[in-house]
Write a protein that binds this DNA or RNA. Structure first.
Length: 178
DNA sequence: ACCATGATCCGCT
DNA sequence: GCGGATCATGGTT
């Protein structure tokens, strides 16, 4: 998924981001929402791959995954960061409703984390379950990232499953979260 | 019913 | 580096 473009259409406007940081989750994985059982909350994660699984967390944030497995398998890839390519103005409005002037830091701060990405793309409950091949949000081919530019580490913000190096990111990209 | 927790972010120190 | 915000979820009682 690294290097692919996530595109959101809002009316006539397009928001585009290049995916630069992701994490993988699956059913046999104590860090995963799919670990225990299929519930109303994680149901979309068990759908056939190609749709968007959005969840609400910490009482105020949303995060988005691309579902990647067969129906029932419970596999998904969390989008942790994207590089903004188009629709900066809309993203800025979504994220900082009263920001007057852009600067370097505000551009980075737009999408350098999973909940920041969702906020700038306007992704919340309504987008849960969307078909990424044919809806207002799609994923298309983008840049091919050379394998030597792909780095991996433990996943962020979890307690179990730290031995799995399932976080993947583009080396030296500015938008990769800290 | 109850309650601890969380795939986070932000502001302050 | 640390704690607070803020609440849906799900495991436990």
């Amino acid at each position: 998924m690294l290097g692919k473009l996530i595109v959101r259409r809002i009316g006539k406007k397009l928001i585009i981001g290049k995916i630069v940081e992701v994490e993988a989750y699956c059913k046999n994985d104590p860090a995963s929402h799919a670990f225990r059982r299929r519930t109303n909350r994680n149901d979309v994660m068990f759908w056939e791959g190609g749709c968007l699984y959005v969840y609400f967390t910490y009482g105020m944030y949303f995060c988005a995954n691309v579902v990647t497995g067969k129906e029932g398998s419970g596999e998904a890839v969390l989008i942790r960061a994207v590089e903004p390519l188009a629709g900066i103005e809309v993203m800025t409005k979504n994220r900082f409703s009263n920001l007057k002037s852009y600067n370097h830091q505000s551009l980075i701060n737009l999408t350098n984390g999973p909940a920041k990405f969702c906020e700038s793309f306007g992704i919340s409950r309504k987008e849960n379950g969307l078909d990424l091949l044919d809806s207002e949000i799609i994923i298309i081919e983008g840049e091919t990232i050379p394998s030597k530019m792909v780095k991996r580490s433990s996943r962020i913000g979890i307690q179990q499953g730290l031995e799995k190096k399932w976080r993947f990111f583009v080396k030296d990209n500015t938008w990769v979260s800290k």
